[in-house]
């Protein structure tokens, strides 16, 4: 395992940001630490990077203690901060060249700039880059380490569609080449696209820690949209499965989806002269899983 977190607690004075958290990040996988803002993701990542000391518990990254063996770890890890990290008047080419030279791994700065799609902006200063371009430059600086492990904090935040594609491709390629990627995000849909392993955080605690497939493919779901005033009890009795109102006329049936079940629902709606505005069959998404595991909280 590239990252082993055991009983980690991080406190800021009276506030407990992370409480007795344990999880692992498999080597050469993409582990997404997922949860809403303030769930403790960044605090956890910062302990892993060696920027923050744990109040209690232990963390091992590539077998090293990030606090005590931080310098040894810096040669092997790439870090992308949640924001900033570059002097506003620094030019893209200069700052990438600077970081390549600091790591001393003979990576060509021009190639790296091209890899993150910033060739046309190579002479621009940080302050003149868009939010998405700044994120891509930050990713380039992390890649300058030619890392064994990449820590990315909200890498696609504020990035446009093309930029997200670029970042996703880079993450997949890095993992394919054996790099472990640990990524913090609150974007469930984005996380589902890149994750191989998911650690779900809620209010400083881990509520799930498993491969993506295990979390999402264990359940199928059927969701449909009709009027707000549907009699869920009557429908549940008619189809023989529990129906829950999710709000805004969206209903979820807690049963394995099937053509027969869909037929029963449409038939019942027809009999009641109620509209069927939409129907969604399929595997549970990360967002569904998160809502299920947190009892609907987001």
């Amino acid at each position: 395992m590239a990252v082993v977190v055991e009983n980690l607690t991080v406190r800021y004075g009276e506030i407990t940001a992370v409480q007795d958290v344990s999880f692992v990040a498999p080597t050469a996988g993409v582990t997404v630490i997922l949860g809403p803002n303030g769930a403790g993701k960044t605090s956890t990542i910062e302990v892993c990077e060696g920027f923050r000391s744990p109040s209690s518990g232990s963390v091992a990254v590539l077998g090293l203690d990030p606090g005590r063996e931080h310098h040894a770890l810096t040669h092997r890890m790439g870090v992308m901060l949640q924001g900033g990290g570059v002097y506003p008047s620094a030019r893209v080419k200069d700052v990438v060249s600077h970081f390549c030279a600091l790591y001393g791994k003979k990576i060509n700065a021009t190639d790296l700039i091209e890899q993150v799609g910033l060739t046309s902006r190579a002479k621009s200063t940080w302050r003149r880059l868009s939010g998405g371009e700044q994120q891509r430059l930050s990713l380039a600086l992390a890649l300058a380490a030619q890392p064994e492990i990449l820590f990315l904090d909200e890498p696609t935040s504020g990035v446009d569609i093309d930029g997200r594609d670029t970042i996703r491709t880079i993450i997949h390629e890095a993992a394919q080449q054996g790099t472990t990627v640990v990524l913090a995000s609150h974007d469930m849909a984005e996380a589902q696209r890149v994750a191989t392993h998911v650690v779900l955080f809620q209010q400083g605690k881990v509520i799930a820690n498993a491969p993506l497939a295990e979390i999402t493919q264990s359940r199928k779901r059927l969701r449909f949209t009709s009027t707000d005033t549907l009699d869920t009890l009557a429908l549940s009795q008619s189809i023989g499965s529990l129906v829950n109102h999710q709000g805004d006329g969206v209903y979820e049936v807690t049963a394995e989806s099937s053509a027969r079940l869909v037929g029963r629902i449409t038939q019942w709606l027809g009999e009641q002269q109620l509209p069927l505005r939409g129907i969604d069959l399929g595997e549970e998404t990360l967002e569904d899983a998160y809502r299920r595991l947190t009892g609907g909280a987001q």
Binding site: E49, F51, H71, V79, L81, G84, G85, V86, L102, Y103
Partner: peptide
């Protein structure tokens, strides 16, 4: 200012001591 721009934090993740 480098601290407030997180430049120092970013440098702290490199081998620069």
């Amino acid at each position: 200012f480098e601290r407030s721009y997180q430049v120092l934090k970013r440098l702290g993740a490199t081998p620069l001591t």
